[in-house]
Design a protein around this nucleic acid. Structure first.
Lengths: 93, 93
DNA sequence: ATAAAGTGGTTTATTTTATAAACCAAATTT
DNA sequence: AAATTTGGTTTATAAAATAAACCACTTTAT
């Protein structure tokens, strides 16, 4: 009757991050923080979880002298997101 | 950009319960437990939360000698569900 | 009649998760 | 050179979900 909701995606902040990343080539930490309106600490933790699941890739580098964290959705992340959306529909349609 | 997701509804089990109740006149504890596949303890706790928020009404009675718990969505619950679904769309569309 | 098992739950304890607070290293501003 | 800002991470706390125990009965089997 109801499809299971991937708990990693069923989180407001992680879902927002994935929702952003699915629509862009890449996005950096600062951008994600502004768009989601969350705290840096929370974002840091949630990005880690998404990365550990292989849903996003994180590249750290320096832009001049400042650190820079760029995130990008992976194919696995894309698939998981699509499945999650599909599962959600079993609840809301 | 992203609408807030009502945390009371952003829970797999509570969402499933609301999803069932929105489509029927009423449903009892046993039916909800079977449809959702959850444990009685978990269902009991989550129904309480929905009831305390005024999203569902709970009537307790006896059917012959056995206790019976009947749940019904309220107008407030109906509205909250509709809003939640609408908010979700800002993430998945 | 009594013990064992089942029904329909509730309550309490444990684990997991989310969130916030504190911190760090370096850069920039005053 | 002290204070503030940037771009984060780490750690502590609060909240939530889940599971395990339990309770009050009823039904079935002995």
């Amino acid at each position: 009757m109801f499809k299971e909701l991937n708990p990693l995606l069923h989180s407001e902040l992680r879902l927002a991050v994935m929702s952003i990343l699915i629509g862009v080539e890449s996005a950096d930490f600062v951008y994600l923080r502004k768009q989601t309106g969350t705290t840096a600490g929370n974002l840091s933790v949630q990005l880690d979880k998404l990365a550990k699941a292989g849903y996003i890739g994180i590249e750290k580098s320096f832009r001049g002298k400042m650190p820079r964290t760029v995130c990008r959705i992976t194919e696995r992340g894309r698939n998981a997101f699509a499945e999650y959306v599909d599962a959600l529909k079993s609840y809301i349609e």
